[in-house]
């Protein structure tokens, strides 16, 4: 997903969820080292992937994203709740998200 598509997606998605234009966005650029597992708590926000990271497995209640996974029939770009980002081997990996924080 390109950043431009992500912005359009976020706008429509927030309207769909009933938040309208009431949300903040933050840019998140994570650097994950070999063997590292990072847990992000996003119970009140949404993380939208703006690229397709290699060497990483991203898992949340919404679904999975892992390019190397050949056992999946779909990948998810939108993540919410407890998000686990796990390095699956090789060099240091980077991943960029747009964090969307809705408010009332």
């Amino acid at each position: 997903m390109t950043p431009a598509l992500a912005q359009e997606y976020i706008k429509r998605r927030m309207h769909e969820l009933g938040f309208g234009d009431n949300y903040h966005i933050r840019l998140k650029h994570f650097i994950i080292r070999q063997g590292e597992t990072r847990v992000e708590k996003a119970y009140n926000s949404f993380y939208i992937l703006v690229e397709e990271p290699a060497r990483l497995q991203i898992k949340s209640q919404n679904g999975f994203f892992e390019l190397a996974n050949t056992n999946a029939n779909e990948m998810q770009y939108e993540h919410h709740g407890k998000i686990t980002i796990r390095h699956t081997g090789g060099a240091i990996a980077r991943v960029r998200f747009i964090q969307v924080i809705p408010y009332k």
Partner: peptide, 14 residues
């Protein structure tokens, strides 16, 4: 198993 609605409810069973 995860089940979610596309609207406001979001994930309702995990």
């Amino acid at each position: 198993l995860s089940l979610s609605s596309n609207q406001r409810e979001g994930v309702f069973y995990f």
